[in-house]
Design a protein around this nucleic acid. Structure first.
Length: 708
RNA sequence: GGCAGCGUAGCUCAGUUGGUUAGAGCACCGGCUUCAUAAGCCGGGUGUCGGCGGUUCAAGUCCGCCCGCUGCUACCA
């Protein structure tokens, strides 16, 4: 079956050292791990490499906020990542870090190749600099007024209102979200890769190499390759946590430049430790059989891995990926993972409550190799694990192993009516499905074998043979021997998905499962150990308790974790504290937990916002708008204003007319799709929660009165 | 509204390059069994394959339009 030994280098995307591993990440690592274990079981030389992604502004800022060095931060996160991966039986051959000597060296190698091929160019970039925080500000750390339409509070790169694209330096009245101060414009030289020079190569590689799913190739053709490719800014001026560029002092490689090179660095480190040759994996003219490079990534980082990265490899003359496997995101119970619902499940939280093998199996049963999102439906999870793994597979041994404890397997494999041979013949189809990353199909085929095996036990009724006395002993021995062989055969097929389970089966009978070939011939005459529980049913209570723990955790971490504002969440007003020891604390802390307090402000800050009582004179639907109602309000006297409020669906126009509301009266007018809005009606709402609740003053308040 | 994706049995999904009466698992109902760390076996579906139209000898499978849902983004000022 194994025609020739393939050399397969496999990577998963490098997790960022800014957060813990969650069940969404694990879709990728489990998928990759199954693929690698399958290849190894088939006798191929497969190497699974990964590393922590450690550089960039976000790490720098976080380390600053936590009052420790970047190195301390990434070391701690690395330890946590490794514990999580270990818990889920992810079998990396090597787990490196982008903050390593090997990576620095290889970044230099790639860099020189790009230089030598004339792919690097230099250009001045106007960027905002936060003098208080002492850093250049990435686009998302700056807000200000749009230079084109004058809309306030826009991000540094584009205006949400008019769609204008600009650089942060063009913003009117920019503010740093790090320090709240006004940043100054500084000009700095950045280095760019002129990707357009690689256009023809990228066209060819993405469209015709077979490395990409046609849907991805199509997406790239339609969104990027149809126009000249823009230059890629790959340097950042100091201060920056990363590697300084040797021939451009004061400049650092952008984190997305050094991250994929981490794949090369991990290879280099692994080779150094195991005596392999880096060249044999990545060089094109290696004397060894050409290696296959497989990258597994999520759809969010597609263009880094399908445009920038192959361009870098091509420029450096290195081996290109044979395949970039792209998967979708994880949803839980059909929705995006949510901290408040407890479905933002960290790896650690899961491990505290459930068996990792179960998630590995569930993901395998749902993964079909496509880029569709994968849904973790917790009820289905429970049903599938209990039915397939406990009821069908484990139960097969549970119901027959005891009859072989004394005798071992039959000395010759008995006649089983062709069952073992049939499942052995399925091996080719199962292997093909694994190879195509269509694990769902592989699991379906394997479970059919388990069904047939259980039907066999049922038909032979070994429990009756056991009672029938000595004359049936030989028949009982045969039946149990068949059942245990079928069980072990299934364990071989499941070994890539359930390595720990496979090892336990090996202990029960037949020794460690080391080769796919073991699915092709039955065992005979071997001893059988005493059967021990291999897997327990999932109880709905376990799921409940995991979700509850997850909610609690999310709250705690949100209370503790520094935000990018890096300002401690203190209670700042007496009012807040005096309300805490309320006699009957029946209100849950959910709303507050979902949205931590904003950074401290001064009374002057507050005074700048002019809140007034207003009366709603008229209210009407805006049929084309999903969320907006058009209100006409008055602060008293003749003048009226038009305000669009996002309360459609929560208030009917009729219920609003005549009532008093609170309005931000000095807010800059905003041109909206359906007209000019001249203020903002204040309402309460919870982060991530539905429901919008208008504020009303006590009776006696009059339009025009100010809130203070 | 823009971009992307999806709509097949109550639920989660398979349906390969268009080809015989459209499938699986779970759930549900009935029967059997009792060896099993409460599993197993047998039987049970009149599903408008979202709708309409088109191409074809033949469409869940290709094309067009429409409807609905999801994600990102936008009208939440």
């Amino acid at each position: 079956m194994t025609d020739r030994v393939r050399r397969i280098l496999v990577t998963s995307a490098l997790p960022y050292a800014n957060g813990h591993i969650h069940l969404g990440h694990l879709v990728e690592y489990i998928q990759t791990d199954i693929f690698v274990r399958f290849q190894k079981l088939r006798g191929h030389e497969a190497v699974y490499l990964c590393a922590d992604d450690t550089h960039g502004t976000a790490i720098m800022i976080r380390a600053q906020a936590e009052g420790r060095s970047e190195h301390a931060l990434i070391a701690a996160m690395r330890e946590a990542h490794l514990a999580d991966f270990g818990g889920f039986q992810i079998g990396f051959n090597h787990y490196g870090s982008t903050d390593s000597d090997a990576n620095r060296r290889l970044c230099g190698v790639i860099w020189r190749s790009l230089r030598d091929r004339g792919l690097i160019t230099t250009r001045d970039v106007q960027q905002l600099y936060d003098t208080k925080a002492g850093v250049f500000l990435a686009d998302r750390f700056v807000r200000g007024t749009c230079p084109r339409c004058q809309t306030a509070d826009q991000y540094g790169d584009s205006c949400e209102q008019c769609g204008a694209a600009y650089t942060p330096a063009d913003l009117v009245d920019p503010v740093s979200t790090l320090s709240g101060t006004r940043p100054e414009v500084r000009s700095a030289e950045h280095l760019f890769v002129t990707l357009e020079q690689m256009h023809a190569f990228l066209e060819e590689w993405t469209q015709r190499s077979g490395a990409l799913d046609p849907r991805i190739a199509n997406y790239l053709a339609g969104h990027f390759l149809c126009d000249p490719l823009r230059d890629w800014d790959i340097s950042r001026p100091a201060p920056y946590f990363g590697f300084e560029i040797p021939d451009a002092p004061g400049n650092y490689w952008y984190v997305w430049f050094d991250a994929p090179i981490g794949y090369l660095a991990a290879t280099s480190e692994w080779c150094a430790a195991h005596g392999g040759s880096f060249e044999s994996w990545w060089h094109r003219d290696g004397s060894a059989p050409a290696a296959e490079i497989h990258h597994f990534i999520g759809k969010d980082i597609t263009y880094f891995h399908t445009l920038f990265w192959p361009a870098m490899l091509e420029a450096a003359g290195l081996q290109l990926p044979k395949r970039v496997h792209i998967h979708g995101f994880l949803t839980v119970n059909g929705q995006k993972m949510s901290k408040s619902r407890g479905t933002f499940l960290l790896a650690r939280t899961y491990l505290d409550h459930l068996d990792p093998g179960m998630l590995r199996y569930y993901y395998a049963a749902k993964l079909s190799g496509g880029i569709d999102d994968l849904d973790l439906n917790l009820e289905e999870f429970t049903a599938k694990v209990n039915s397939d793994l406990v009821g069908k597979v484990v139960n097969l041994a549970s119901r027959t192993a005891r009859w072989l404890e004394q005798t071992g397997l039959a000395p010759d494999y008995p006649d089983d009516g062709g069952l073992f041979a049939a499942a052995a013949a399925d091996g080719a189809a199962i292997a093909e499905a694994y190879e195509a990353c269509d694990f769902a199909r592989a699991m379906r085929t394997i479970m059919q074998a388990a069904d047939r095996a259980n039907a066999y036990v049922d038909a032979e009724q070994p429990w009756k043979l056991a009672k029938a006395g000595p004359e049936s002993a030989a028949k009982l021995h045969d039946v149990a021997s068949v059942a245990i062989n079928l069980f072990r055969q299934i364990a071989v097929y499941l070994a890539p998905v359930l390595p720990v389970f496979a090892a336990q089966v090996g202990e029960l009978v037949g020794g460690p499962i080391l080769s796919w070939e073991e699915s092709q011939r039955p065992l005979a005459g071997q001893p059988v150990g005493s059967f021990r529980s291999l897997m327990r049913r999932v109880e709905p209570a376990q799921i409940e308790s995991m979700l509850a723990a997850s909610v609690t955790q999310a709250r705690e971490s949100q209370a503790k974790e520094p935000t990018q504002h890096a300002v401690p969440n203190q209670s700042t007003t007496k009012g807040t504290t005096s309300m805490e020891p309320s006699a009957s604390p029946i209100d849950s802390g959910e709303a507050l937990a979902a949205e931590p307090l904003a950074p401290e402000c001064t009374i002057d800050d507050f005074t700048r916002v002019d809140l007034r009582v207003a009366r709603v004179l008229a209210a009407e639907e805006v049929p084309e708008a999903k969320k907006l109602l058009k209100l006409t309000i008055s602060f008293g006297g003749e003048a009226t204003r038009t305000v669009f409020a996002g309360i459609k669906g929560f208030h009917t126009p009729e219920s609003l007319v005549g009532r008093l509301v609170v309005v931000v009266a000095n807010l800059a007018p905003r041109q909206m799709k359906f007209g000019l809005s001249e203020g903002m009606v204040v309402a309460a709402s919870g982060a991530g929660a539905t429901g919008v609740y208008l504020l009303s003053p006590d009776s006696g308040a009059l339009p025009g009165m100010r809130l203070r």
